[in-house]
Simulated scan of single mutants.
Amino acid sequence: MKIEFDKKDKNFPFVATSLLYLTELVLYLTGFISGTLFLNFLLLMSVLFLIFLFIIRKKRVEKRAFVFSAILSLLLLIYESPLILIDEKVYLVTSYSDPLELIKGANIYMLSVNVFQISGVENEQEVRDMFIYSQGVYDIIPGKNYMIYGSKNTAIFEYIGLYKSEFEKSFENVTAYLNTSNTEIDEFYSQDNSDGGSAGLAIVLSSFSKNGKLQNNVPIAVTGAISKTGEVKKVGGMKEKIQIANENDFSYMIVPKANLAEANEVKGTLNLPIEIIGVTDVDETIQLINDLNRVESNKI
C-alpha cells in the first residue's frame, strides 16, 4: 500500500498540471475568461515550475515529475500562444454571393455565402456601420471563444499537415466519385479564397451534364457536400443560401436530406415561395431532376 501511495504522490505534479490546464481551458471556451488571461495563466504556471526546479536543483528529491510537468506546461503555452494574435472582439458577417453555374447550359447553380471576419472593433454597432451601404448583408455574428479556439486548432493542424480543409476534402470526394476531373472542376478548386464542401453535389451534377449523363432544362439551386460514394452530406449556411436562391427567383432548390427540416423552417419563417427538396445521394438527385424536367415540360 505504501508503494502505491508513493507512486500517486510522485505523479501528482503532472496530474495537477493537466487538471489546472483543462479547468482554465473550459473557463476560456465557455467565455468566463479571456484568451489573454488563459495565456497568462499558462505562462505563470510554466515560470513557477522553472523557478521551483531551480530551487530544488541541488536537493536530493525526485525531480522527474516536476521536470515532466514543466515541459508539459511549456508545450501547452507554445500550443496555445497563437491565441494572443487573435483579436478577442471578432465578428462574422455573412452576405450575398452570386449563384454560380459551373458548366454553362447545365442549369445547375451552386450556392455560396460570403463570410467576412471583422476584428479591431469595439462593438457590433461599429460592424453594422461598416456595412451600412452594402447590399445583401444577412447576419452579424459575435465570435465566441470556442469558435476562435476551433479556428486556431484547425489552422495549426492544417499547417503541420494533420488536417485537410473541407474544400480539399470536397475536391478529393468529387474526383473520386467521378473517377476523373475536368478543366472547370480544376479551376474551381484552385481558388484561394474558398472554403467548405457544399459545392460538391452541384459540381458532380454539372459534370454529368457536360458529359451527357444528365439533361436538365430547369434552373435549380443546389447545395450539398458529397462523399466518395456519392452520399449527400449536411452543409452550413442554409438560411443565407435559401435567401440567395429566392432572391434569384429559383423555383426549386435541392438540399441534403439532413438539412431539410432546417431549410423548411427558414422557408416558413421568411414566407418564401421556393420549393425545397431534400436528397440523400447523387442517384436520387438525378432521378429528382429528371422528374422536375418532366413536370415542367408538361406545363408548357
Rank of each mutant, 00 (worst) to 15 (best):
Y149M: 08
E126P: 02
E172W: 00
F167P: 00
V127N: 08
S151A: 14
N107P: 00
G143H: 05
D186Q: 15
F131K: 04
A155S: 13
E101A: 00
E172T: 12
L102V: 10
N182A: 08
L92T: 07
I156Y: 10
V127T: 07
V93W: 11
E124G: 04
G136Y: 03
L92G: 03
A155E: 09
M147Y: 14
Y109M: 06
P142S: 01
Y138D: 06
I148A: 03
E101M: 01
V115K: 08
L100K: 13
Q117I: 11
K104N: 05
M110V: 13
L111H: 04
E166W: 02
A155N: 09
T183D: 15
I118Q: 05
P82G: 05
Y159A: 13
V90S: 12
S119T: 15
Y149I: 02
A176T: 15
Y91I: 10
V174G: 02
E184Q: 13
G150W: 08
E158S: 06
A155L: 12
T180A: 14
V174D: 07
L162M: 10
Y109D: 01
A106H: 01
Y133D: 11
E158A: 07
I132F: 06
V121I: 14
I141N: 03
I185E: 02
K164T: 07
K144D: 04
Y159G: 00
K164G: 03
E168C: 01
I140M: 06
T94I: 01
G161Q: 04
S95Q: 04
F167Y: 14
V137N: 07
Y163M: 09
F188L: 15
Q117D: 02
D139T: 09
M130H: 03
K169Y: 02
T175V: 11
Y149P: 04
I103L: 02
L178V: 06
S170M: 07
S134D: 14
S95A: 12
S97L: 10
N182E: 12
Y96K: 03
Q125L: 10
E126Q: 15
Q135R: 13
S112C: 04
T154E: 15
E187M: 10
Q135H: 14
L102S: 01
E122A: 10
S97M: 10
L178Q: 06
P99K: 07
D139L: 02
